[in-house]
Design a protein around this nucleic acid. Structure first.
Lengths: 251, 251
DNA sequence: ACCTGAACACCGTTCAAGT
DNA sequence: ACCTGAACACCGTTCAAGT
C-alpha cells in the first residue's frame, strides 16, 4: 500500500514533512521534482531510481513506498507535473482560434523547458488522466464554439493533439547519449555520400536543410529552433478547421 | 570492429551464411528481423539483447559482434528496416498532393504493422539517414512542385513530417505492459469522477470520446482506429499547403 | 572471421526488519 | 507511518579465449 496522492492533491492538502515521524522527510512531490531535475541534467536514458535515491540520500525502497509501485507510475507523475499549467495563459475574451493557439504554444514551451522528458509525454500512454483535463476541456470547448460535434469533434481533437503534440515529441526526440561530435561526423559523411543521380532534389537543397529538417538531422529542437515550422503547422490546422467548420453563429 | 553493412547493402550483396565458417550462421539482417519479431510479440519494454540471443540460440556477444556496438545501433537498423518501403505505392502521373497522401498513408500502414516499435521511429533520433532518403526526396519533390523553396520549403517539410509522423507516434504509443484490465478499471473510475462543474464539456461528451481521443484513453491505435482522424489531419495539411502555395504553373 | 563464457558494473522491485 | 538493507532476478557491454 502507498499513499497514492497525485501531485496536485498533495499540493492542495498542504502536506509537508512535519512532526517527528519524518526522519527523512521524503515527499511524493519532492521525488517527482528531483526526478525531473535529474532527467533535465543527465537525460532520460541515464535515469534510474537507484541513482535518484542516491542523489536524494535515501534508500531505493523508500522511493517505492512513496510512489505507487513502479517506475512507470513515477513517469506518469512526471508527465502530469509538466503539463498541468498548459492553460495558464488563457485570457477572457479570446475567440476559439486564439484559445487553441495559446494552449498549444504553452504546451510546446512547457515541454521545451524539460526537453529530455518529451518521450514520456508523446510516446507513452502514461497520463493519469487528471492533470490534463483542463487542456482537454479548452480544446473541446474551442471546437464546440467552432461548430464541431460528435465524430467530427473527435477527429478534429485528435488531429490537433496528435499533430501538434506529436510534432513536439519529434522536435525534442533525443539523440544518442554518448558521442555527440562522433555522430555529427558520421552524419556529415553520409550526407556527403548522397548520390545526386538517385536523390537530385535532396542533394541540391542539402545546404538549406541539413540538420534543419526532421529526418536529416543530428541535433534536436533543444539546439535547433523549429519555431517557424511549428507555427506553420499550427496555422494550417486552425485555419483549416475554421474553413471546414460546420456553420454556427456568425463567424 | 564489425562488418558495418546496413540491411540494404547486405541484401544487395546477397550475403548468406555459406561455407564451413558459418558455424552458427548469424546475419545482421537476421538479427534485425528476429528483433522485430520479438518486439512485435512481447513489446519494446520487454525487449533485451540477452533475451534475443536466447531466442536465437546464440551468445549475446555474438549479437554485439554483428551489430555495431550497442543496442541503439540495433534500434537504428530496426527503424530503417521498417520504413524503407515508404514510397513503394507511388505511381507515375500522380500530382504532388497525391504523392504526399500516398507516402504518408504508406508510412502509417508500415508502422501499424509493427506498432510496438513506433516509439523508436518517432521518439528517438536514430535514423541512420540513408534508408529514409527516398521518403525525403518524395516530400521535397512534392513541395517543390507546389512552389515551395528555401525556408518555406523547410517549414512545410517539418510541418508535414512532424505533424503526421508525430501523430502516428502518439497513435501507437504503448500503454503499461502489465495489468491491462486493471488499468482500464482505474481509468473508468477516474473518468466517472470528472467534476461536471469544473469540466462541463468534457463531462457532457464523455460517452462520445472516452477511449477514443488522445489524452483520455487506455488503449492505443493498435486496438482503437484513428484512421478518420489521421485522414482529417492529412487533408488539413495538404489542402492548407496547396492554398498557401507560392504560385507556380497553373494549379 | 565468427563465436562462446565468464566477468564487471549496473538495474527494478520486493520485503523482512527496524523506529 | 516511514525507512533501511539485503536479496532476487535480471540487464548491457566487454573481452579473453576458442575454432
Amino acid at each position: 500500500m502507498h499513499p497514492g496522492l497525485s501531485v496536485e492533491e498533495e499540493r492542495k492538502s498542504g502536506k509537508k514533512p512535519r512532526g517527528r515521524a519524518a526522519a527523512v522527510g521524503l515527499t511524493k512531490a519532492g521525488i517527482v521534482a528531483a526526478a525531473v531535475r535529474q532527467i533535465d541534467e543527465k537525460g532520460l536514458a541515464a535515469f534510474s531510481i537507484r541513482d535518484l535515491a542516491r542523489t536524494l540520500g535515501v534508500s531505493a525502497g523508500n522511493i517505492y513506498w512513496h510512489v505507487g509501485g513502479a517506475k512507470e507510475d513515477l513517469f506518469a507523475e512526471i508527465s502530469a507535473s509538466i503539463t498541468v499549467s498548459v492553460s495558464e495563459n488563457l485570457a477572457p475574451g479570446m475567440d476559439w482560434q486564439e484559445r487553441l493557439r495559446s494552449v498549444f504554444l504553452s504546451y510546446r514551451d512547457l515541454v521545451r523547458d524539460h526537453a529530455n522528458v518529451a518521450p514520456l509525454l508523446g510516446a507513452q500512454l502514461k497520463s493519469n488522466g487528471v492533470a490534463n483535463l483542463a487542456w482537454v476541456e479548452v480544446v473541446l470547448g474551442a471546437l464546440q464554439e467552432a461548430g464541431y460535434e460528435g465524430e467530427m469533434m473527435r477527429d478534429a481533437f485528435n488531429a490537433l493533439i496528435g499533430g501538434l503534440a506529436g510534432f513536439v515529441t519529434m522536435e525534442f526526440a533525443p539523440g544518442p547519449a554518448d558521442n555527440l561530435e562522433d555522430w555529427e561526423a558520421i552524419f556529415a559523411e553520409r550526407l556527403a555520400a548522397i548520390d545526386p543521380a538517385h536523390y537530385p532534389l535532396t542533394h541540391a537543397v542539402l545546404p538549406d536543410i541539413s540538420n534543419r529538417i526532421f529526418v536529416l538531422r543530428w541535433q534536436n529542437g533543444a539546439t535547433i529552433s523549429y519555431t517557424s515550422s511549428f507555427e506553420l503547422l499550427l496555422d494550417l490546422l486552425i485555419d483549416g478547421l475554421a474553413a471546414r467548420a460546420p456553420a454556427v453563429g456568425l463567424q
